[in-house]
Structure formats: structure tokens, C-alpha cells
Design a protein around this nucleic acid. Structure first.
Length: 466
RNA sequence: GGCCCGUUCGUCUAUCGGUUAGGACACCAGGUUUUCAACCUGGGAAGAGGGGUUCAACUCCCCUACGGGCUGCCA
């Protein structure tokens, strides 16, 4: 019986959840959740110069919005620094690591000279084989004693078998001169301690996998399954950056994309399963597998994102959609709906949701239900005076509950407007008459027709009039 | 410079040696329509280039070109 699958998402706290990171998290989540495994979250905050608590919060908020739940407590890599140091000490004791007293200046000089020669050799510490008796009383870093010959082979679920000549890999630093661990050591120790079985991450880490394999070997730990997925690129094919617009997940939230659609789109970006395009997360979990991940970087396509979101809007559960809409309003600092608006939207949402792709669009379609714009008797003359067009009819908003027009008066106004605009009035007259008979229809007739279609409107108005 | 990865319609992709190279988004045309949208129908659109291997290559191998990543006491 196979051991439980454990994946993790391990972002560094940069101040926001990068859309690419969100996808990495999503893939890890899908893989674990689809197999009854665990999905863990760890913040790679060993670089204290950059760390802020707010940056971590931004990541948690992003994941929460996207609907990616993690198991257990969020692990702070920084909090585990003593454990990392202990492992470094073990490596020292075993001779798989050594103390290096080379200063950063010395290394910089070495690199500058190498570059001047036109070559770019890896730094080889003179302390690698120095006797302890020659060690000065000075700060030192702990370096991995990496093999210099042979090769390190990565079995990657996405990239296949990748070989690295060991002469290309340097003796990476595991412990800085101030005693804090570097990323390279910390990831390995943490992934091992957290029992991570599958490391699914961006392929910018592919080279690192080789170095990390050396640490696993040095410690005698089992190497996890690797899966290095290509990064997301901007529409122009270049690495996604702020230049392309939205890179932070919260920006997508602010643009009003529903989380389910976002998940679907991100899943399909760089991953495919036959012709599957629109699916729920449950379905994605069923289908998702590492071998469906493409090997080439994928470009972000906002048009398709929007289209995918449209499908999810339409298939969403009414109550859930309303709930998410409320969250959207809160997240974007907009006022919450009033009880009246809420009530109207409850009734309108089944007809509205299939016509919107984002929450702002949904709100736009729902204007008839959200805004109270009773016409006044003065509008009658306005209507008569303006020969312009259909726009008159469009802007004519009738709050039948609020207006004391007689059936005859109202019909006359609309008739006049229609005549001026040269519109065949027949079709409109029928539902209007039905509505007037009932006198119970709140939304404007015209906007409602826009929102739910003419035939639907007629049917509903007929209902209302009974 | 070195090492590594990649390259099918504009975009995301299917294909895992034999297909009229399929789907989706986008686009164009038509339909529906009291705007927009949505919806329906149809259409154009692809294997980077060059060598091999093979009866047969988008699928396998090599080279070139182009793109990307790594090459930190960042992660």
C-alpha cells in the first residue's frame, strides 16, 4: 500500500501571491486532494531582510480566496532555523559539508576574473580539504561537499530524466556566516521533516533539484518525486512581470473574476486532459495528473480567462454566487447590498448569471434591480421632445410600484417614444399591458428584457399579471 | 560564456509512428435580437528550419534558429 501523498506550496513572502505561484499551489492542491493526500503550506521566510508579516498574510488571503485549503498549521521556515543548523552540523560531522572561510570579496574577485577570461567556472573553495588545524578564528559558512565528478540525475515527472554534470554544480552554501540557513538547505530539511512526497514547483527550480538531491543523499534521506512545471508568461511570451498588468492574485479578485472560473482557467493553463475545457474542481481532481502538464511555458490569455469565468458564473449555485458577490463588494470596498436589493437580486440572479462573466458585469446586468430610478411626470415631455432614438426607451426606467401612472398614461408615453424612435411597438405593448394589469413588477420592463431576454420577460410578466 | 528546458492554428492545447492533424478561446461571415451581451450556424487558421532512422514521422535521433530558466552568504 502506497504511503499517503503529501504536497506543499512553499512561497517566499514577496508581498502578494503571484498568479504563477497561485497556479503552482493549485496544482499541488489538486494532486493531493485528488488522491486523498495532504496539502501543506510553508512560508520560505529565511531571508529576513525581505520578510514582513503582511507579506505572509497576502499569500494566505490569496489562497483562501482561490479556495485552496491547506492542512495543518502554516509552517514558518525561519522558525525552524535551529533544526536546519542542526542538520548542517550533522553534515559537518559526517564530512559531507565543510567550513569555508572565503570572504564574499574573495568570491567576487574569483567570479570577476573568471568572467574576464570569458569562462564562468563555479567557485571552488580552497577550504574544502583544509585541515581543521589551519582554520582561522573567523566567520565561516558551511558548504556542501558536493561531488566533483560524475553526474546527478533527476527523474522528473514533467521534464523526464535530466542529467547534470557534477562539475557544473558548486559547493553550495548551507549555512550563512551568521549561522542562518540558506534556502537550499532549508527546503530539503523541511520537505523531509514534513514528509513531503511530491515536490511540484516552477521549473526555475529544476537546476536546484540537482543540488538538493545531493543534500538528500548526504543525509541518507529518500528523494521526493519531482515535478517541475513551466512558468507562466505574459501575452507577449516574456516572463510575466508587472509590465504585463496583473501579476498579483488579488488584482484578479478585484477585477471580479469568480474563484471557480479562476481555478478552472489556471488549471487548464499549461495542463490538459484530452478535450476537457470547462470543469469543476471536483472533476479537475479526478482528471489531474502530473503527466498532463506541458513542457513549454504558457501565456496568459485574458479573453479565455473571461470566457471560462462566464461558464462558471452560469453554472454556479445561486446562493453561492450571491455570497461570492457580497465578498467581492467587500473586497473592493463597495457598499454592501441593502435588504431590498438583496431581495430583488435573489429573484433576478437565475436569469442574470448566464449573461455575466465577471462580478462587475453581473452588477451591470442587475442595475434594474439594484437602482431605484422612478420616472417623473416631467419625463413625459422629455420623451416627447427628444426624437433621438432607442436610447430614450433604454433610459426609461419604470418603477411601477413608485409611479402612479395610469395604464393609459404609461402606454401613451411609451408609445410616443417608440414612435419617435421608429420602433415597432407591438411586441413591447403586450408584456407592458400584462405588467400594468398586475402592477406588481418592480424592475424596469426594458432593463429586465435586456437582462433576461424578451420571451422570458413576457412569460414572467404574464405570470405577474395573473 | 557554461549548464538545463522548451518550440502543433494568434492563444491554451489533443495526438503518445499510419488522422481529411481534433477541441477551446479569439477572429471573420451569417442567423436571432427594440442597444450591448448572450445564443445558433458556418469559415479561415498550425506541426520553427535542415538533416537522418523507418514501408510510414508532428510523434524517434542529430544540427541550427528562436524562446525560457539557472549560473547569489535570494528564494
Amino acid at each position: 500500500m502506497a504511503a499517503q501523498i503529501v504536497t506543499r506550496f512553499a512561497p517566499s513572502p514577496t508581498g502578494y501571491l503571484h498568479i504563477g505561484g497561485a497556479r503552482t499551489a493549485l496544482f499541488n492542491w489538486l494532486y493531493a486532494r485528488g488522491r486523498g493526500g495532504k496539502f501543506l503550506l510553508r512560508i520560505e521566510d529565511t531571508d529576513r531582510d525581505r520578510y514582513t508579516p503582511a507579506a505572509t498574510d497576502a499569500i494566505l488571503r490569496g489562497l483562501t480566496w482561490l479556495g485552496l485549503d491547506w492542512d495543518g498549521e502554516v509552517v514558518s521556515q525561519f522558525d525552524r532555523r535551529e533544526r536546519h543548523a542542526a542538520v548542517a552540523a550533522q553534515m559537518l560531522a559526517r564530512g559531507t559539508a565543510y567550513k569555508c572561510f572565503s570572504t564574499q570579496q574573495e568570491i567576487a574577485v574569483f567570479r570577476a576574473e573568471a568572467e574576464a577570461r570569458g569562462s564562468y567556472a563555479v567557485f571552488q573553495s580552497p577550504w574544502r580539504d583544509a585541515a581543521a588545524s589551519t582554520h582561522p578564528d573567523a566567520p565561516y559558512v558551511v558548504r556542501m561537499r558536493a561531488p566533483r565528478t560524475g553526474e546527478t540525475v533527476i527523474q522528473d515527472q514533467v521534464q523526464g530524466t535530466v542529467r547534470f554534470g557534477n562539475d557544473q554544480l558548486d559547493d553550495m552554501i548551507c549555512l550563512r556566516s551568521d549561522g542562518t540557513p540558506t534556502y537550499m538547505l532549508a527546503v530539503v530539511v523541511d520537505d523531509h521533516d514534513m514528509a513531503v512526497t511530491h515536490v511540484i514547483r516552477g521549473d526555475d527550480h529544476l537546476n536546484n533539484a540537482a543540488r538538493q538531491t545531493m543534500i538528500y543523499d548526504a543525509m541518507g534521506w529518500p528523494v521526493p518525486v519531482w515535478a517541475h512545471m513551466p512558468l507562466i508568461h505574459g501575452p507577449d511570451g516574456k516572463k510575466l512581470s508587472k509590465r504585463h498588468g496583473a501579476v498579483g492574485l488579488e488584482e484578479y479578485q478585484a477585477m471580479g473574476y469568480p474563484a471557480a472560473g479562476m481555478r478552472n482557467y489556471l488549471t487548464r493553463l499549461g495542463w490538459a486532459h484530452l478535450d476537457a475545457e470547462i470543469f469543476t474542481s471536483q472533476e479537475a481532481m479526478q482528471m489531474f495528473d502530473l503527466d498532463g502538464i506541458g513542457r513549454a511555458p504558457a501565456r496568459l490569455d485574458f479573453k479565455k480567462l473571461e470566457n471560462t469565468c462566464g461558464h462558471h458564473m452560469a453554472m454556479a449555485d445561486d446562493a453561492a454566487l450571491l455570497h461570492e458577490l457580497a465578498q467581492f463588494l467587500r473586497a473592493t470596498g463597495q457598499p454592501a447590498l441593502t435588504a431590498i436589493q438583496q431581495d430583488r437580486l435573489d429573484h433576478a440572479i437565475p436569469f442574470l448569471k448566464s449573461n455575466a462573466k465577471t462580478f462587475p458585469q453581473l452588477l451591470e446586468k442587475a442595475r434594474f434591480a439594484l437602482e431605484c430610478r422612478p420616472i417623473t411626470r416631467d419625463d413625459a415631455s422629455h420623451v416627447a421632445l427628444d426624437p433621438a432614438s432607442r436610447s430614450i426607451l433604454k433610459s426609461l426606467t419604470l418603477q411601477l410600484q413608485n409611479v402612479q401612472w395610469s395604464k393609459v398614461e404609461l402606454e401613451a408615453i411609451l408609445n410616443a417614444a417608440a414612435a419617435e424612435a421608429g420602433i415597432a411597438f407591438g411586441k413591447l405593448a403586450q408584456p407592458l399591458r400584462a405588467a400594468l394589469a398586475g402592477r406588481t413588477v418592480a424592475p424596469s420592463v426594458y432593463d429586465m428584457m435586456l437582462a433576461i431576454g424578451r420571451d422570458e420577460t413576457i412569460a414572467r410578466l404574464a405570470d405577474a399579471s395573473q
